[in-house]
Design a protein around this nucleic acid. Structure first.
Lengths: 217, 217
DNA sequence: ATTCGAAAATGAATGATGTTCAATATCAAT
DNA sequence: ATTGATATTGAACATCATTCATTTTCGAAT
């Protein structure tokens, strides 16, 4: 308590600014050129920081990439929640989330660049959207809509499957329409019946709120 | 026809030997140190070939890694088929395959090293085991056991999910036992009922034939 | 005001490695 | 034996991620 009211020193403020600037710069550069092609030099420049400074805040390039992706995932999770808050059917909450993530990953040009490192992307998705997704899975199970024994495991599988399908769509190996069927399969995974899964996947979706305060800037 | 009976020139033979040697060497080195840590220099040496020669056969290090993984997947697919050939229930054929792949990826130390590049692994799995898995999915659907509209898409999702779970198990994020539940979820994905999925996942499995002629020697 | 020093920032240097390419070797055909 | 197309070679190159000796910053002590 005392800790939070005590005014932070200038150094501490500078530190926070730099970390923030680096995540924003990392997102900007990586989403434009892809994670691999983005150089630490360019990211540092975009953050108005020396090349070595990045390593005061992140252990490695991968570590920075994880931070960038987690930021992105967390933001999307919050935006999804803003919409699903009013949904009556807990199964539909989960369905909306899954559908929205796939759409973002295949539609948004910036996301496409970040997909390549699929295990990093899937991991960030698992971690940052997990608290929401797992809660939704459990809610729907309690309500008798799903039959999921291990929600975290189910969400882990879903994360990887979503990223995999998105990757395939962006590479032209799957048509854009595959998204619908993907949602059906992911819903089937929860033990809901086939027919209901199809129904859920095809319901109309309300629009998502605009991009949050974090990325883009 | 004439083409295949005509004796191949010495150059052609040398070429085939080198390609083969490179895949074997790639497997040996990459499965020991991991794909990233394996250097082209070391692989070339293990294949008794100059460093530049690798690039006569493979466009890049990644290209070689893909060839190595595809070899591995193809071999496993054949070994699985040797067992499932006698199965009566087409659903059980698919279940056995899925279960066996997860087990290999999490048990075999050499596989673990190859998992890290998950999108490469998943892609190889999709491509090389696909013809078998897709056929099994379709057979089971025709037999009324599964209800899969798009078998290739379903297998793509499964590939990524399997690799993701295996990765998590090898990193200690999931217990070994998660495999069983993974199989259940993957079976649910096919539209089979929850109860039947559990049953299928827990049936006893016959042993797999020993490792094929291709990898490891 | 001035001094002091710990923490933060810097950016040139380092090291490791994937890839290229000019030179060389191979070998079937003549 | 000659030749030329093809394959091989490995030293040189270029690219970065990362390190670290030096410098800068800034709150606190005097």
């Amino acid at each position: 308590m005392a800790r939070s009211t005590k005014p932070k020193g200038r150094v501490a403020v500078r530190q926070e600014r730099n970390r923030e600037a680096l995540v924003v710069a990392g997102y900007k550069v990586m989403s434009r050129k892809g994670i691999d092609a983005a150089t630490m030099q360019e990211i540092a420049e975009a953050a108005n920081v020396g090349a070595g400074t990045v390593y005061s805040y992140f252990k490695s390039k991968d570590d920075l990439a994880v931070a960038v992706l987690e930021r992105l995932m967390h933001d999307l999770a919050l935006r999804i929640e803003a919409v699903t808050d009013t949904f009556k059917d807990p199964a539909q909450v989960y369905a909306f989330g899954v559908r929205t993530v796939i759409e973002a990953a295949t539609t948004d040009l910036r996301w496409k660049q970040l997909l390549y490192r699929s295990e990093v992307m899937a991991d960030a998705m698992f971690r940052r959207m997990g608290p929401f997704a797992i809660r939704d899975l459990e809610n729907a199970t309690k309500a008798g809509r799903f039959k999921v024994a291990e929600a975290p495991l189910t969400w882990r599988m879903a994360s990887h499957a979503i990223v995999g399908v998105s990757l395939a769509v962006t590479q032209g190996q799957l048509p854009y329409e595959a998204q619908q069927e993907t949602v059906v399969r992911l819903l089937c995974m929860t033990g809901i019946g086939e027919a209901e899964a199809v129904d859920l996947a095809n319901r109309e979706r309300p629009p998502l709120p605009v991009e949050g305060s974090i990325p883009g800037r």
